[in-house]
Design a protein around this nucleic acid. Sequence first.
DNA 1: GATGAATGAGTCTTCATTCAT
DNA 2: TATGAATGAAGACTCATTCAT
Lengths: 191, 191, 191, 191
Amino acid sequence: MSPRTSDQWDKIRREKRQVILDTALALFAQRGYHETSISLIAKEAGISKGLIYNYFESKDSLLNEILSLGLDALIKDLEMEGNESLTKEKLVRYIDITFLKLQENPKFYQLFFSLIIQPRVLSIFQDKFFTQIIPLLSLLEKYYKAKGNKNSKAKAYLFMAILDGVGVDFIANRENFPLEEVKKLVIEMFT
Amino acid sequence: MSPRTSDQWDKIRREKRQVILDTALALFAQRGYHETSISLIAKEAGISKGLIYNYFESKDSLLNEILSLGLDALIKDLEMEGNESLTKEKLVRYIDITFLKLQENPKFYQLFFSLIIQPRVLSIFQDKFFTQIIPLLSLLEKYYKAKGNKNSKAKAYLFMAILDGVGVDFIANRENFPLEEVKKLVIEMFT
Amino acid sequence: MSPRTSDQWDKIRREKRQVILDTALALFAQRGYHETSISLIAKEAGISKGLIYNYFESKDSLLNEILSLGLDALIKDLEMEGNESLTKEKLVRYIDITFLKLQENPKFYQLFFSLIIQPRVLSIFQDKFFTQIIPLLSLLEKYYKAKGNKNSKAKAYLFMAILDGVGVDFIANRENFPLEEVKKLVIEMFT
Amino acid sequence: MSPRTSDQWDKIRREKRQVILDTALALFAQRGYHETSISLIAKEAGISKGLIYNYFESKDSLLNEILSLGLDALIKDLEMEGNESLTKEKLVRYIDITFLKLQENPKFYQLFFSLIIQPRVLSIFQDKFFTQIIPLLSLLEKYYKAKGNKNSKAKAYLFMAILDGVGVDFIANRENFPLEEVKKLVIEMFT
DNA sequence: GATGAATGAGTCTTCATTCAT
DNA sequence: TATGAATGAAGACTCATTCAT
């Protein structure tokens, strides 16, 4: 009878928003962005088309939000106390977490990789990506240099490429890819 | 105005077909599959929309053909006398060619990578892909085993992942990626 | 926290209703009817969307109400003791008020003129409009006939047309239109 | 069997384009711009929705084209050898044609007036309007000054306002408006 | 073979309106 | 009374595909 409190509205909004995000992520990853219509997302989420626009400005911004949140979470997990130099221990942990995340949330990575290569990548995506990747590359370079590697820059780039390559190949061929063994090998060869 | 022979007609058909394929590849790579309309392909190729349907059943089959032909060419270049065992020399050559191709035709790889991850495409693609990749993985595994690597299977997969990862990263960040140095490092670490 | 009397409730209702009407009029005039959403009216009025439907049946009926009230006010201002015959003095006053209103509230007139021409609105509107205009035309006709005008009916219609035309042109080109001078001329030529 | 010649295509295009323009004008005038959907235009024109977009970029540009063509035609008919000064004869002719056009094509005028007042007038419209109206006002002013009118500027503006006012009123009340008589009166009072 | 007009299903998006609280 | 989430019908627009010539 009495109108809902602000808190109640907030909760409803947050929850519904999350439902939409989850549904959209699953579908985008599974079928690709273009092959996923707003109608389908609505149907899968059990809501009306219009409601999606109550929570997101456009299909595009829905994607942006998914990527942004996903990247933030990813980054947060992988954070290694920025400025300090890298230790072997930290690097091993970084690799561990990366492989774990990949295994836990392949859908997100599938979406992630499919978009990172698209000719017109979303700007938010590229920004966030580079502001995180560049410092990491720099840390890695120092690390390898300290270990006596001649071409430490190349090794840093190669290391990052490996993480991406493993991601792509694991997604493309999840049944056969020996993720655990490969992880061990990466740790062995790159730390 | 003498009537053309059957052979001449054939030649004309083959050439026009090739024009369409080339134009479509360039546009798909440049703009993405969905952002490229049949109209645009026709305009760029200097022909009418309708004519494309004279040569290809659908937009989809046009893409399939492009991928199929591209993959064939790629495989052909990289072929290393199938059954025989792998030598260090051969592997180095394989790496060389892979990096060279990547550098020569990044647009082409961009299309490939962007599509390889798409679920829909994967299925079309996987057959051909795996019939080529699996034997290669097997060769690599033997090679590494012969070299005394404990986990030769993982190393074979890792090697393939590296090639993909380098492709993805090089495409995503062509200005900064130290392709030549990375290649040297790959040769050093994986042959 | 004493319970409000019925009168107080009534007052609150009337005031809120007026807020909605005022806000809607301002927005309709400023942006046009179709470009103004109920959401926007609610936001500008500082209330919720739903509440508007507590006071008005539909967007359409809200517009109708605005027009109806506006027209009533307009008529009231311009009223010249109905039945009696028209004098030069009264006609001058009528012109004065018309031009004054136009100057004071051009937005309001903009809405009026823009809607008066719309076929859909015309029908809603015509009844009220014509029951007011026809008598006025008749008074004017008598006035001009008494002054010896040959074609008094045409002159009456022309006079009304002038008021509309001045309204339209003044609204369309407010910076340049010499309203005051034109008024003098109208008085000179039509009284 | 053989493909159509360029001329044939041209004819088809021109004719179909005209059908769309005519249908759209009738509907826009009858129901208003916003109340007329592209679907309806297509249905009335006996073609598919999509085809309209083969001929016009958007609903907006369709309207623009209608107005642009209509104004051009209007202007052409009303043209009075620009630079020269105005004579009584020319002015009478101008009034004659204006009233005639109004009678012949009330639909266009209805659309015209309904749009000229809209808050957001189309730019093309305003441009054309002012480049035609300003010079005419200037000619009129000279004409009235030459005739000894004290306030020739106001009279010029008033004259233009009358034409608009007559247009609006005639459209709003076509059955009763004594167009012919009013025309005579305008000629009498303003030439 | 070649053309491009024509189709129509499908897409994203808007917004008046309803309704549970 | 007041709220704003939720609905769903409708709108503009796109584009792969067809077909008469």
